[in-house]
Amino acid sequence: MSLMKDLTRGIYRENPIFKLALGMCPFLAVTTSVENAIGMGAAATFVLICSNFLVSLLRNLIPSKVRIPCYIVIIATFVTLVDMVMNAYVPDLHRSLGIFIPLIVVNCIILGRAEGFANRHPVMSSVADAVGMGVGFTLAMIVLASFRELLGNGTWLNISILGTAYRNQPLLIAILAPGAFILLGFILGFFSILEKRRGGGR
């Protein structure tokens, strides 16, 4: 089914982070804990689904000359919406994601999918694509965040895993800025080995 294909595309084959290298800024910045990663993923996925839906719905109504400004307004509207709702109902999460909530506006995944997919495809497949991309983005963030939280704080989703002895002397660098770059470098290297294996097996 092509709808299924739209849905799964973003999760592995065209994973926005590992394959397309889009949306790096929030990806690196908020992956200090799994909780933040899930929160950010949910917010971005919501915006992605809504904007893909609306862009696809209006694709024949918006003149192509002003489509980019229109997309930006649509995306910014949903981002502001998420911002307000999170501030009202999950203030702690809102606080820890901080500046990266308004910055969802410039997350290249969202504008990229609006411009590259939703404006040429029907509503259903656009939404499926958005769900796939959003889930792919979220999963990628959870992967990096798991490494960072486990190594840097000895916990996973705030559950102590490595015990207090480790937590008193954790590998702090993992949670600091360099840890994000270095761990991502190794994860990408791992994927490229995986890719080669698969390519060689064929």
Binding site: P178, F181, I182, G185, L188, G189, S192, K196
Partner: peptide
């Protein structure tokens, strides 16, 4: 070979960040 391209760029960025 596995680290060519983006992976090594991130590793370098990490060292700079340190």
């Amino acid at each position: 070979p596995a680290l060519k391209g983006k992976p090594v760029a991130f590793l370098v960025a990490g060292v700079m960040s340190i």
